[in-house]
Design a binder for these strands. Structure first.
Lengths: 176, 176
DNA sequence: GACGATACGGAACGCACGCCCCGGTTGGCA
DNA sequence: TGCCAACCGGGGCGTGCGTTCCGTATCGTC
């Protein structure tokens, strides 16, 4: 690969990292190109599609987060809650975290698998509601992560979800 | 108003009701027109903009829901939970419920006010976390309602949120 | 220093969608 | 029944965006 090509590739990745993080996947690709100081054609020389660029930007972060699911914890519930907290903290700062679930099937599957493992152990230990599935959790988290960028307090949102996941002794007792 | 005009107006409203409910606000306006058996121009004769049509379709349902916030309940928490349950039940069947919060500032304000009143009373009674704001609740509900159409179990999602809203005696106890 | 391959930039294409315009049609009143 | 105003259908415009194409510039080697 030519030297200027490698340099431009990095410039594109830098611009994409910044703009995807602040504006999410919706940012126009031309804006990324402009920010990188290149033309749209150059972006497409290095990445076949906008989605591929997005994945290149997010997959290492997501992979690191999935890897952190293996870290030891005091209890299975703690392991699950720590993971969800890590997701929330990341999403509170970088907007592309929630889009990753929607845009890239691979990243979604990876998160689904990681969450599924943690969830199952936490449920077996009895600390988390038995009726929640991994899909429920992925989708709920996606909604919550998106909500963080619309004026809500991220910490409060997270605590509500974590609290709601815990097995409740006193039923919610609401009318249907 | 001419008879055929009134008839077409109803046909447009019927088609919009159905398609907004199943596909949300994202459904192309031409599709609504086609389903109604009219041209796009006819739609715009009766409604100045797509958003106006959407509001015409949803505002009565939202208004009815807001009115139901006044219904008596056993306790302030029950009143709040019953309202949230009603929102969730509606959104589980009609996809435009969650879009209403995004698309129409008026509907959003109405829901915000209704939720804010119920929330405050429930918090004063001590049954709901003190650190939640009305904005938090609106945004969280929006995220949750959208999640219902992506493979999650609506009832489980609702119970998690309701459970998480209740004041917790045992802290979530998760690592940060 | 010249030449070929590689890469660049940005104009242009295709598509989707909200919205408007106009020639033709239809309804209802005299 | 005839006339005019109201209304209709659908083709078309403007815009935004992902993607592609191609003439030109640049890199790296001989």
């Amino acid at each position: 690969m030519r030297a200027d090509a490698a340099r431009n590739r990095e410039k594109v990745l830098d611009a994409a990292r910044e703009l995807f993080a602040t504006q999410g996947f919706e940012v126009p690709l031309d804006e990324i190109a402009t920010r990188a100081g290149v033309g749209p054609g150059t972006v497409y020389r290095h990445f076949p599609t906008k989605q591929a660029l997005f994945q290149a930007v997010t997959e290492t972060r997501v992979a690191a987060m999935i890897a952190s699911a293996e870290e030891p914890a005091d209890s299975p519930e703690q392991a699950l809650f720590a993971f969800l907290t890590k997701m929330a903290d990341e999403a509170a700062v970088k907007r592309d975290m929630s889009d990753a679930i929607t845009v890239s099937p691979e990243l979604r599957k990876g998160l689904h698998a990681a969450l599924g493992g943690l969830l199952q152990k936490a449920q077996e230990a009895g600390g988390v509601r038995q009726d929640v599935t991994a899909t429920d959790l992925v989708v709920l988290m996606k909604g919550m992560l998106q909500s963080m960028h619309e004026g809500a307090n991220p910490a409060v949102l997270l605590e509500i979800v974590l609290g709601g996941l815990q097995s409740h002794v006193s039923s919610p007792d609401h009318a249907r």
